[in-house]
Computed example of a mutant assay.
Amino acid sequence: MFLSAFSPSTSVSSPRSSLPDDEGQEVSGYTLGHIIGRGGFSTIRLASSSTGGTVAVKIVRRSDIARQDNPTLVQKRLSNEAAIWSSLSHEHILPLFSAVHTSYADFFVTLYCPAGTLFDILQREGPLGQDGAGMMFRQVVRGLRYMHEVAGLVHRDVKLENVLVDEMGVCKIGDFGLTARIGELDDDSSSEDEGVDEQSEQYQRQRAVSSMRQTKPGLPAHLSLIRHHSGPRHRNSSPLPSSARPAEVKQKPECYNPGSLPYASPELLLPHSTPLRPHPAQDIWALGVLLYALLTGRLPFMDSFETRLQMKILHGVYEMPTGIGRGAEDVLKGCMERSVSSRWTIAMVDDAAWGVG
């Protein structure tokens, strides 16, 4: 009693109770493991089953959605992503195995891709050269062709970070948060336009007659860093509209995520009296940017000043890499054509992609 009166008081904090997305928790028959990645407001954990299977689980907490500038829009896009993702099935589309929705978070169980994204691979290995770039590019094209011609969708966020590579070297397109049907505006967009433009209708007609070829998965080439010297500057033949002035250019295209601006097509940056409808040509431009990066290890349009970067994209001036072959040059020119009507279709890119590498 006497000693206890002089004993220092110690406050023992109670341990934090486990959260539904903590390591060790179970989701859809899988035990959550360590964190392997993070998104804008999501966390990706490795997870394993009792039989030894390994998957990746994308976790989006309700509390993180509530902290966004427009929680309602974010939730709508998340629901849209889940609906679209679950409807897709193709060798080069990241599969969604199951989705669990709780009051705490949404859990999306998908394929674990240990090689990471194309961005990760470029960071580790540098430019892939013609053979490596061509092999990866053709797979992305096949996945995107399925989306355009079979599913009738525009991805709207094609970039290195959104293409994952599995343990066999097979590319898988992921992240469908901005994906939309060809020619259809989002519910939150208002438009006085009537109908879908002629090119969107043309793509819809192509879906019915398209036949998809199969690609054989292959291992990614482990090539040493290749330095590409600056080549001649290439400029699209289509003139820049006189209405495009630096002050009139949108500061942040609403249909592109932060960090995706270098992949944005020129028409997305021009001022429009009505919202621009989703069009496959927007993905085609991004495909050209992606191929350029795979070949050279850098983006065709870069600038630390955002407005200046937008003007570079609008003018469509970039350095054509040297030593990449005529086939790759043709694909780059066809994809990064400023005029939407002159830009290649996904079928044209697919046919010519065999000339890359």
Rank of each mutant, 00 (worst) to 15 (best):
P232A: 06
V317H: 03
A347T: 08
S210R: 07
S224D: 04
V12K: 14
T102E: 04
V289F: 09
L295T: 00
R77N: 11
R67Y: 14
I346E: 04
V27C: 08
A115Y: 01
P127I: 10
A208C: 05
R124Y: 02
S237P: 05
Y104L: 11
T54S: 08
A105Y: 00
S191A: 04
L144S: 14
L276F: 01
L144Y: 05
R16G: 03
F176L: 15
E329A: 11
T51E: 13
E161L: 01
Q25H: 12
F2H: 06
S103Q: 08
L3Y: 11
H90D: 12
R156V: 01
S200W: 00
W285M: 10
F6E: 05
C113V: 00
I226G: 11
P95R: 01
D188A: 02
G316E: 12
Q199L: 07
R62W: 10
H90W: 00
R142H: 15
L290G: 06
Q25S: 15
R298P: 08
V289D: 06
V158H: 14
I182K: 02
S11D: 09
E91W: 00
H92W: 00
S9F: 09
P20D: 07
N257D: 08
V209I: 14
Y263I: 07
S243M: 08
P300I: 01
R277P: 02
S242F: 01
L19R: 15
G52P: 00
I121E: 07
F137V: 09
Q204H: 13
F2L: 10
A221C: 14
W344R: 15
R227P: 02
S7G: 10
H155E: 06
M147S: 05
R213W: 13
A353W: 00
F2V: 09
C335N: 13
T102W: 03
Y112C: 14
V57M: 02
P95W: 00
V150P: 05
T10G: 02
L178H: 15
H92D: 08
L78K: 07
G195L: 03
K216W: 03
L96E: 12
T274V: 12
Q139I: 04
L314K: 12
L122N: 06
Y112D: 04
D166M: 00
L225A: 13
L78Q: 14
W85E: 11
E254V: 13
Q202S: 10
G323H: 00
M348L: 12
S7R: 15
F97D: 14
S18Y: 12
